[in-house]
Design a protein around this nucleic acid. Structure first.
Lengths: 354, 354
DNA sequence: TTGAAAGCGCTAACAC
DNA sequence: GTGTTAGCGCTTTCAA
């Protein structure tokens, strides 16, 4: 009855452990004198509450399980940072998991997070089928999806408008005279990729262009695979005049293929990438990209989740707006002296569209 | 006595909860028939052990607290990924914290992690003073430092040889004819930065060059600050012939400064950066950098920590070897037609040194 | 306004 | 081999 922990504090302050608990959690009125004595005891003992014991009793650990396909993907890196910041600001901490687009890993992590009694989950779900994640909504596990959604799963989704993003990018390419825009897609099927493909189609339709299936190339996002895929694209005849890469994970492969095929970008082939990233504006040529409000998405995801945890109903968030950041790789700006040229666009030519 | 959890399994299998616990943890011999019955009950009940209860009892949660300054820094992103992978492989999970080089945040996170009874900590410590982290070793908290070390703190460190990395880079610049190599350092003081500066000095010494303090520039790593700092460097007369940036967080600032000052790199000023990152090889010009075996560092950190957790003595790990990846920004390769030129180095010119 | 006490679900002595 | 049971440190009724 006198151990350390809360009991030690209680003894030192000459009160019951219940009282200590109440001042610690502000869970009941405690008279100022007792409160003061408890606080002093806490301080002099350097008492640190045991969150495990607390969580065992309460049934939930102040932890958010975060599941992304790969923290190394710049988009998810940024998202994770924003989530961690916002979570910490409201008293939660982040348990991280990488799914690598594997359903198996995803399920294993969800199990682990639940076995930890994580207060809630934020997940960028693998695939686009409900699968076992449907269980979450059914079991009343507080969860929000980020970036991607799953058809028929009643979990709030924090996302940006992928169809719009791809539409803007494709429109831009078409407007600046590109005849054949090839789509390079990663081989996983997620709502994001589907929506982006739709946006691409919509833009084609606006220009009265047919959707040509053999301009759509799907392959593994691993660097070597993306490289070979792009080589195949470049070898197609007639050669596409521009490439729209739907995953930033594939950029390196695309650029390497340009190098190996001695393709001058944007002169020979233009390039637009979905998602911005570090150094993108210093690449030769600077990369035109669709940029998502990543940090905001992370923040909103936590806000949404915390609202669920507190039972305060919050409207499902609207899709945020992506924007097109026009740099030089799309080829819409002056190019200077012909083939082989790789000069950057002057800084003043960089502009944004929404 | 019959609740759900382990008790439900016990009841269904017609055994005691102790037996269930033992088959679940392989903690004692259980006869095959009972074991089978328990396993069947576990399966049909969809029983998932409560790790909180288990952790409360055992005193530790199978979680590793990971503290880095900023997960958004590509080096730490990669490190975190490697740590998460290895941790998961051996049954641990990762709680993430960003310190932003703030001692306050670092202490707060350590407190949080301890209050969760994290099994161990992996931290890239802020600063270079022992500070409150000394407590870890004193209190017997299993911990390992990564990347950085703290003087006088008895915690194993997983690191690469920063002095060597900087030495290699500086030697390369000196050998290829650079007269004045400016050092650009972030304004935090960590063992890494100190060691890299030493490596730079050692290389100068080998060439009989004096260490000129006014070639060493220290400033905030925020992009705008790094930009202004680099502008100041470029305005120095005589102008440095090369810049060695000790933190990859400052690269964007440096490149932007080059742009604004219309400095052609490497023709006008060469550049070497500590740490490789995505797209670095596609930048104009491709960035020469010191590359650390980041993933290996993460893996070893977990191995080291887990060994501590199991009490199996493991030798403190030796510093790993960084290597210089020579691309074009250092200016050691053919440059073509003079000032203003930004052509990439041919692929065959990329090479590595160790 | 304060305190006593019953668990949260599990592990690990210890007894049979 | 298997079962009984005493907690781990905390929250939260419930009674005083």
């Amino acid at each position: 009855v006198t151990g350390s922990g809360i009991a030690g504090v209680a003894r030192m302050a000459g009160v019951s452990i219940a009282t200590v608990s109440h001042v610690l959690n502000d869970s009941k009125y405690v008279s100022p004198p007792l409160r003061r004595r408890v606080e002093r005891a806490v301080r002099t003992l350097g008492y640190r509450p045991d969150r495990l014991a607390s969580a065992l009793r309460r049934g939930r650990l102040p932890v958010i399980g975060l599941l992304v396909s790969d923290i190394t993907n710049p988009f998810y890196t940024e998202l994770a940072r924003a989530i961690e910041d916002q979570a910490a600001a409201v008293g939660y901490h982040v348990l991280l998991g990488n799914t690598d687009e594997s359903l198996r890993k995803q399920e294993a992590y969800v199990d682990v997070f639940l076995s930890f009694h994580a207060a809630g989950l934020i997940v960028a779900p693998v695939g686009e089928q409900a699968g076992s994640l449907a269980r979450l909504a059914r079991d009343g596990v507080p969860a929000v999806f980020v970036n991607r959604e799953l058809a028929g799963v009643a979990v709030p989704v924090v996302r940006s408008d992928n169809a719009l993003g791809a539409y803007l990018a494709t429109m831009h390419l078409l407007q600046t005279g590109h005849e054949r825009v090839a789509l390079i897609r990663p081989d996983w099927t997620t709502s994001t990729i589907t929506e982006r493909t739709d946006g691409y189609r919509r833009a084609l339709a606006v220009f009265g262009r047919p959707f040509e299936p053999d301009l759509v190339w799907t392959g593994s996002a691993r660097p070597d695979a993306a490289l070979r895929l792009t080589e195949a694209v470049l070898d197609r005849r007639p050669r596409p005049t521009a490439i729209f890469a739907l995953s930033s994970a594939m950029v390196e492969g695309v650029l390497e293929a340009f190098r190996r095929r001695a393709v001058a970008c944007p002169h020979d082939v233009g390039l637009v990438v979905y998602n911005d990233q570090r150094l993108a504006e210093f690449v030769a040529p600077p990369l035109t990209c669709v940029s998502q409000p990543t940090r905001e998405m992370g923040r909103v995801a936590v806000v949404q989740l915390v609202a669920m945890l507190q039972g305060s109903g919050l409207d499902a968030p609207a899709a945020l707006a992506p924007k097109l950041i026009v740099r030089a790789s799309c080829g819409c700006v002056d190019e200077g002296p012909g083939p082989g040229d790789r000069s950057d666009a002057p800084a003043t030519d960089r502009k944004e569209e929404t």
